[in-house]
Amino acid sequence: MSEKIIRIQNLNKWFGNFHVLRDINLDVSSGEKIVICGPSGSGKSTLIRCMNRLELHQEGEIMINGMHLDGSLKNLEEIRSEVGMVFQQFNLFPHMTVLENCALAPMWVRRMPREEAEALAHKYLTRVRIPQQANKYPGQLSGGQQQRVAIARALCMNPRIMLFDEPTSALDPEMIKEVLDVMVELANEGMTMICVTHEMGFARQVADRVIFMDEGEIVEENVPEAFFSNPRNERTKLFLSQVL
């Protein structure tokens, strides 16, 4: 458990003149599950998007699996295939069937033959419990089903780390559970996970650490038990009193 799969040191990022991430330090061990919460605009999305270089940072250092996230392009594609990401808005490709969505990256990034990629896609669609929807288009599925496809699509690249950016915020209440169940299962299998979410039940159940961010800083981090029952910081207390 001690191998650090993500190391972030003194990370600073600006959007123009807006200082969005300030001196972030974060180490994540292989297999660890981190939940990030915090008020809107605190920089949670920006932080996890820096981890697969969807956003570029200006200062500090990010190491994923021993590789530095910097300008060199080869590195970038390697890192992106190690890090899967699930978005709030699913971002499935609407012109492809569910199966094609999942088989796409293995075929075009990993150069896997089609049959093999589709078998892989079927395997992960079965794991997120929607194998029977494989030949439908995303527009024909419910939100919860779409988000599970998005998870399967990311898993098809066999990533070592999964990033989730508010995966359940765009869902109706009945569908939240089916997505969280899949995520819990994934956590139990030992995947390294970074989740931005306000599902505190989920945080209690699976997180090794909960991180609270505000104004671009990590204000507090702790094991869930202590984080929820005994926050050290006034700001955290206020936030928790609003979301719980």
């Binding site: 992106r80 499935l92 490709f93 796409l104 990034v109 998005a150």
Partner: peptide
């Protein structure tokens, strides 16, 4: 085409 499509593709490692 929404920005999310580019991001999803990039996150999968597509150039």
């Amino acid at each position: 085409i929404p920005k999310g499509q580019y991001e999803a593709a990039a996150a999968l490692g597509l150039g």
